[in-house]
Structure formats: C-alpha cells, structure tokens
Amino acid sequence: MTQIIHALSEISDRYKALFVDLWGCVHNGITAYPDAVAALQAYRQAGGLVVLVTNSPKPRAGVAEQLVQFNVPRDAYDTIATSGDSARSAMFRGAVGEKIFFMGEWQRDAGFFEPLKLLHHPLNIERVPLDQAEGIVCCGPFDPMADPAVNRADFLYAKQKGMKLLCANPDIVVDRGEVREWCAGALARLYTEMGGESLYFGKPHPPIYDLARRRLTELGADISDSNILVIGDGPQTDIAGGMGEGLDSLFITGGLAAAETKTSHHPDEDALRSHNEKEKINPTYSIGRLR
C-alpha cells in the first residue's frame, strides 16, 4: 500500500535526484504552483538534483522558455528531458520516413522540426499532405477539444498504406487550468486500436528515462536508480513508467486523478486504494499536491 505523505521534505533525504513531471505537478498549463516550486528549490538547496521529465513535444529549450512564461524560476530545476527530444531523434533517424504528415499546432510545434545537431547525417524531413506521406508525426490534435474519433478517416487511409505514427507526447489528456484537453497520446491510442502502428518515446516508455539518466550524466552525476524518485500525477505515464523502470515514485493525487482519489488537501485513503487497484499501480508514496 502506498504511503500518504504531507510534504516532499518527509522523504527527500532518501534520494539524490528527482524525475519530476511538469503539467499537473509544477504548473497547471497557465501558471506555476508556488508550493511545488518552493519544494523543488528547497530540495536543490539541500544538494539534490531535479530533472524535469515531461511528455511535451517541445525540445528542452522550448520547454525552458515556456517555464519562464509560467513563472517557474530557473533555480527550481537543474535540467530537462522531453518526449519531444527523444522523438525528434527517432524522426531524424528515419523512424517514419522522410516525407511526413504532421499533426499538431504548427505555431506551437515548429521547434520539433529544427535540425538535430547531435546526428551526423539526419534525414531531410519534408512535411507533405497525407496522400504523399510515408508516415505520420503527431505532436497533438489539430483541435484539442475535438473527440479523437474525428481522425478516423485519415487514420484508416494511413493504416491501409502501412504508415507508422510517431507520437511525440504519449499523454492522453491534460488539464489546462480548469479545462481538460486531448493530447497526442489519445490519437496514437486510437490509431493503434484501429490496427495501425504507433511509436512512443515519452512516459511511460523507456526512451525518455534513458534520456533523463543521460541528463544526469551531463551534470556530472553518477546516481543509481535506488537514489532516484519519480514524481507525477499521471497514473499510466508517470507512475506506471516509474514502476517499469524500477524507480520509487510519488503520486500527485490532486492532478489528473483528483476526483477519483477524492483529493482536497490530501487524498482519501479508501478512494486512493480503489483508484490504484483499478489503474494497477503501486506508487511508493502519495501526496495531494507537491509541496
């Protein structure tokens, strides 16, 4: 059974590094949670390292710029690992071909297609209409409020052509303030259900955790998995991902699962147990909000 705690400081001295989710934990898609920021600042001041591990399709530089807009201060974290960086690397290596059909919001997601300097011979990726494409790159829905089923016709065509769909953000939904929106993961799930092949690189899949560990190495840190704590509000992304990697986890119950866990300041113990059994997760710790 998960241990319900009231503050990160109760357990933080057991870990040398945190892999921290952003949306729903550190900010709500509009502005930062002050208590979460303070908790991360205190952890770093005590010598711990904070890696922000996010399913954002943006490169880490783009996420850093966004954090400034959300009032998340630079001293709240050390580095960033994004699903976008992991997926970009696969795209430029040819995971879905050179001619791709793009799904998302171009003004927001253009950074995904910036040349990847780490590769010696990246492919020359070309955005084309679906009927000319070799594969699909999905950074998100065209309309985050529309049911993913509106894409069925395009997905049926793509599946019949044998296209793979590269999913840059495995999240199914996200709450922007008080509004719940669909994410790329919902489209990838639909494509898979229809018989297509979706490729994932963010949480809960291994590539983003490999990237997060490399980010620690870039900081000069050699930290064993037993000294890393995963923090997040996504049962099937953050917590399932941490479990899959053999890492301890702290479940933020006041995010996506606030209603199911009856979280006000703290989760209801019976509701939390029922929720975790339904989701087949077993987080090491749980807390209402990161504080």
Rank of each mutant, 00 (worst) to 15 (best):
D233S: 06
T237Q: 10
E126C: 11
I281R: 04
A76H: 07
C25F: 03
E126D: 12
Y157M: 11
L49H: 15
S89N: 15
L229V: 01
A95M: 10
S56T: 11
H275L: 14
Y157G: 09
V37P: 07
S224L: 12
V20E: 03
S198P: 11
S56F: 04
V230D: 10
C167Q: 03
Q41E: 13
R88H: 01
D75A: 09
D109I: 01
L219Y: 04
R88K: 09
A61K: 14
S56A: 12
M243R: 13
L250H: 00
A158L: 08
D35E: 15
C139P: 06
L52I: 03
E65C: 11
F113V: 04
G111R: 10
V63P: 00
D171W: 05
A259C: 12
E10M: 02
A95V: 10
L247D: 02
R14D: 13
G288M: 06
A76I: 05
S86R: 12
M163T: 03
V128D: 10
L116F: 12
M194T: 03
A17E: 08
A81K: 07
V51I: 13
T217K: 15
A188V: 09
L229R: 09
I208K: 01
F101R: 11
N169Y: 00
V53D: 07
W106I: 11
G220R: 09
R60V: 01
S198H: 08
V173A: 12
K262S: 12
T31I: 13
C138G: 03
G48T: 02
V150P: 07
G94C: 04
E279R: 15
H205S: 10
F142R: 15
A133W: 02
A186Y: 02
G288R: 05
A90L: 08
G97E: 07
P57W: 08
R152I: 15
S264E: 15
S286C: 07
G288E: 07
A258F: 12
A221Q: 11
V96E: 06
D268H: 10
G255S: 02
F201H: 11
V26L: 12
G196F: 03
L272V: 01
M145D: 14
E181F: 14
M103E: 02
C139K: 06
L199V: 00
A184S: 10
E126K: 14
D75V: 05
V96T: 02
I136W: 04
D109N: 01
L130Y: 00
D78K: 09
R176Q: 14
D210K: 13
F102S: 05
H205P: 05
L219V: 08
Q41H: 10
N71P: 07
S264C: 14
A64N: 08
T284K: 08
V137Q: 10
A95G: 06
F19I: 00
R180G: 08
F19R: 07
A133P: 08
D78Q: 09
E181C: 13
G62A: 03
K280Y: 11
L165D: 04
L166K: 06
L22Q: 05
R60H: 13
T2L: 03
Q236V: 08
G177E: 00
A153F: 14
Q66G: 08
H27G: 04
M145A: 14
R291L: 15
A87P: 01
A212G: 06
A212P: 05
S12V: 11
